[in-house]
Amino acid sequence: MALSKKTKEAFLGPLNINNPVLVQILGICSALAVTVQLKPALVMGISVTIIVALSNVVISLMRKSIPMRIRIIVQLVVVAALVTIVSEILKAFAYDVAMQLSVYIGLIITNCILMGRLEAFAMTNNPLDSLMDGLGNGFGYAWILVVVAFVRELLGSGKLLGYQIIPDSWYVANGGFYENCGMMLMPAMALILVGCIIWAHRSINDKETK
């Protein structure tokens, strides 16, 4: 089954040209908060993708029956329900991850990407396109998170996914010269990193469109 051009664009757009974090500047708060380490960033990225995709589909299926006056509330209720279910499932089947992400999972409800896509896309498009759009935005958000978390964990703790990458013997405490850059653990630096990615992103994209 060949996907229509529109569907393909719905998926590919947010990965690059219409990236939710870099171009639409949405979802910045969690991009700063959970990216101190790579593992929570991955889990967050996957969770957001699943929730955005699912809620896009659900709202898209319901879109013709939702009363216009309460549509935002309905969207919120659906999203809240989905997030709660995901959170409960995590607590039942992946307890230690759930504990690490405890606050942030609940905050997905307030993630602007979610409400943005529901309002801008799912309310006016069919379920398949909405699914693709949800997945696209989710992955677009996720890869930014992964990149930022990669840099932050590597330079801020010398580790990746909990494994020590920078050799222990390099550290000052062990007789070496190196120190982890404590600034990387701060949200301020994460914002600067996102800024750098936007910088690179715009340079590359502008060159192509010229």
Partner: peptide, 14 residues
């Protein structure tokens, strides 16, 4: 879908 009755019923059901 914009009538009052519908909106209220819808909310309750949801």
């Amino acid at each position: 879908t914009d009538s009052n009755v519908y909106t209220i019923v819808y909310s309750i059901v949801l």
